[in-house]
Simulated scan of single mutants.
Amino acid sequence: MGRYAVGDLQGCLEPLQCLLEEVAFNPSQDELWLVGDLVNRGPHSLEVLDFLYPIRHALTVVLGNHDLHTLALARGATTQGRHASLESLLSSTQLPAYMDWFRELPLCVRSNCGEYLMSHAGVPSQWSTEDALGYSAELQAVLSEDQQVDAFLQNMYGNEPACWNDGLQGFDRLRMITNTFTRMRVTRQNGELNLKYKGRIEDIPDGYAPWFTWPTASPRRETQLFGHWAALDGKLDQPGYIPLDTGCVWGRYMTLLDMDSREFHRCHCEPAQ
């Protein structure tokens, strides 16, 4: 049995298929981990889900910000930011099934043996692994509940609150959990998020640093798999962290990690139009 992890797909199907063919992926016996942002911006969001949904039994997937935004569009919770690349998906007869699947997905997962922890943007130093898994379960429960999901999606957007505290409640708490797992790149030492910055490490504003550089409040033995920050280009000299978003949708490449050998495979991508 092989285990593989792949960075942000964002509607790019052919590079994914190229990588899976290279490692002879077999969904009847292998596992594929996906760090979120399955859809949006790339040319084949519908086709990506057409490909993944039948093999979902072999997948471990966390939600990214683009996945949650697509869910909000599909359910009418927002009409803003409807990228043209999503039109075929949003008009597909398969949309309800695919969005029901999204509603079942977590924001953070840990491997059975405890050697990997995966979320779309990462897990901040202030949260223990158990904290993170608990907060993910909180949000997943809301997404799966018919009476709560639409109100959450309508109130999901925004950059506040910017700093976690255990006393947060209601939509502020859910928005903070969501933003941390799906949008985080740089923070202050106290965990305060700067959600506007998307650039290189070298250009980070004073007072902020990459979330993964701050010392953890409690020791974490898992290696973190994350995506979201394409500007890192998959290059990070930081033990315990593996960035997998290598900018496929921008015309760079898609990355696959063999989770057992730690070997990387890459496939070059055409930029999305």
Rank of each mutant, 00 (worst) to 15 (best):
T79E: 14
L13N: 07
N65R: 06
F51M: 08
L49F: 07
D67N: 10
T78Y: 12
H83M: 14
Q224G: 02
Y157G: 04
I55T: 06
D172H: 13
Y157F: 13
S136M: 07
H120P: 08
G170D: 04
C248I: 04
H268Y: 13
R173H: 09
S125F: 04
T60P: 07
L117Y: 01
V149N: 05
E138P: 03
L38G: 06
E14L: 13
V23M: 09
E192Q: 14
G167I: 10
D150W: 11
D203S: 15
Q224R: 08
G7C: 05
N179Q: 03
R56P: 04
P54M: 00
S45I: 08
F152G: 05
H120I: 10
Q154F: 01
Y53F: 14
D233G: 12
G11T: 01
S28W: 10
T182E: 00
F264A: 01
S128K: 09
V142H: 09
G64A: 02
D146R: 10
N179C: 02
D258A: 12
Y53G: 10
T178Q: 13
I55N: 00
D146F: 01
A84M: 09
L86F: 09
N159C: 08
H265Y: 13
L68V: 12
L193D: 07
Q17N: 10
P210H: 02
H265V: 06
W250E: 04
M184L: 04
D206I: 13
D150R: 15
N179K: 04
M156Q: 11
H268T: 15
H228G: 03
S85C: 05
N65L: 09
P15F: 10
L195T: 00
Y208D: 07
Q80S: 14
R110W: 00
A230E: 09
G114K: 08
T223L: 01
C269F: 08
Q10G: 00
V35E: 05
L52N: 00
T213S: 06
A162F: 02
M254R: 09
G251I: 00
D260H: 09
P215N: 05
G122Y: 10
G122S: 06
L256G: 03
S85P: 03
T187M: 04
T182H: 01
Q147V: 14
T178W: 08
V48N: 03
V23S: 09
I55S: 06
P124H: 12
P205L: 05
G122Q: 07
V39E: 01
E192M: 13
Q154R: 14
R82I: 08
L236W: 00
L38A: 06
R185G: 11
N190K: 06
S144K: 14
W33M: 13
P15H: 14
L256K: 02
D260W: 00
W33H: 13
V48S: 01
I204P: 03
A141V: 11
D146C: 07
F226G: 01
L105G: 00
D258M: 05
E263Q: 15
L49N: 05
C267D: 04
L107G: 02
M259E: 08
A121T: 02
H265K: 10
P96H: 04
D172M: 11
Q94L: 06
P15G: 11
E222G: 01
M156K: 08
Q140N: 14
Q148V: 07
D100A: 15
